[in-house]
């Protein structure tokens, strides 16, 4: 698993990258009550706003971590946004994207580097 400074995690699954937010991010946001996911098939560029999440406290934007195409989104978390607090690094992933160049992940933080980043 790789991590961004925006507190997203990325997991390579075949030729797709699964993206979600970290336990740390979910904890900081507090109880999540709303999530808006991008449309499947949307082409995104790195740092483009792709997901809106709102907790009881505030709204936050989630940025695309890489250039690519959104191929699948996790609809159940739209119906039950609280799942994101329960299992942010597992069942409550946000979207899967098809990425041209997986080598961009090499520069991202691994788990140890992310732990240092948030401590």
């Amino acid at each position: 698993m790789k991590f961004t400074e925006e507190h997203e995690w990325l997991l390579v699954e075949g030729d797709l990258v699964v993206v979600g937010i970290t336990n740390h991010a979910a904890e900081q946001l507090g109880d999540i009550v709303f999530v808006e996911l991008p449309e499947e098939g949307r082409e995104v560029t790195k740092d483009e706003e792709v997901v809106v999440i709102e907790s009881v406290k505030a709204a936050s934007d989630i940025l695309a971590p890489l250039d690519g195409e959104i191929v699948e989104v996790n609809e159940p978390i739209v119906e039950e946004p609280g799942k994101i607090n329960e299992d942010p690094e597992g069942d409550a992933w946000f979207f899967k994207m098809k990425v041209e160049d997986l080598s961009a992940l090499d520069d991202m933080m691994d788990e140890k580097a992310y732990k240092d980043f948030i401590s």
């Binding site: 507090g30 109880d31 009550v33 009881v56 406290k57 609280g82």
Partner: peptide, 10 residues
């Protein structure tokens, strides 16, 4: 205190 361990919702 804005919240305790329970969190705002609970």
């Amino acid at each position: 205190p804005v919240q305790y361990k329970l969190g705002v919702l609970k």
